[in-house]
């Protein structure tokens, strides 16, 4: 932590919002992006990212300076995201494309299409979107790894600290998460044949 940050931190601890804003300026985008990829929609991600900063602000006093400020923020972020995902699973969110169990045979939920028009959808079919969709389908633990490592370029060491997990574990989890994503993408034969070497 550089001296400027230290001063800002001291002021923020005393409730100075301006100092706090400057202090976390650099983290806002990253926290939002982590939340966005974890949760999958921008509205909830924004709420969550804001909640992260409120928590950080309120618990600045508890921040021990031997830890990295960034690690601490990202730890709060991942914990809040995972917690939110857990709550959702329990809440049993009904997804629009979920199959309705009628008892005899399953029927797709029919809804009026308010979504993007076909040409927008065509755009959506880009590789990137497909990859992002696939990431959303991964289990939470794999998704967390890919988001921290590949989408946000954090080091193994940082990830280990953020998750408070041994580095060896992080190493093998990252590999497994990538394997899992690759397998998911393999199901999309067209994409895979075009994009990956056979």
């Amino acid at each position: 932590m550089n001296p400027d940050e230290k001063i800002l931190l001291e002021r923020a601890k005393k409730g100075d919002i301006d100092a706090f804003e400057t202090l976390v300026e650099d983290y806002q985008k990253k926290v939002y992006n982590i939340a966005l990829r974890m949760i999958g929609n921008s509205h909830d991600a924004e709420e969550l990212a804001q909640e992260v900063f409120i928590r950080v602000f309120k618990s600045l006093r508890n921040f021990k300076e031997q830890a990295q400020f960034s690690t601490w923020i990202y730890r709060i972020t991942t914990n809040l995201c995972l917690d939110e995902l857990r709550k959702r699973k329990n809440r049993k969110v009904v997804y629009l494309d979920q199959e309705i169990d009628t008892g005899e045979n399953e029927v797709k939920r029919q809804l009026e299409d308010e979504g993007p028009t076909p040409d927008v959808t065509a755009e959506k079919n880009e590789v990137r979107e497909l990859v992002l969709d696939a990431i959303q389908k991964l289990p939470d633990n794999h998704r967390t790894m890919l988001i921290l490592r590949d989408l946000n370029g954090m080091s193994y060491d940082d990830i280990a600290k953020i998750l408070n997990s041994p580095e060896g574990t992080v190493k093998s989890r990252i590999n497994r998460a990538r394997q899992a994503l690759k397998n998911l993408l393999k199901n999309n034969k067209e994409l895979f044949d075009n994009y990956f070497v056979k």
């Binding site: 939002y32 990137r128 990859v131 992002l132 590949d150 989408l151 370029g153 690759k182 990956f196």
Partner: peptide, 12 residues
């Protein structure tokens, strides 16, 4: 390829 594809995903 997968890794480079992932790291090319833009930040929102």
């Amino acid at each position: 390829q997968l890794v480079s594809l992932l790291s090319s995903l833009p930040e929102e």
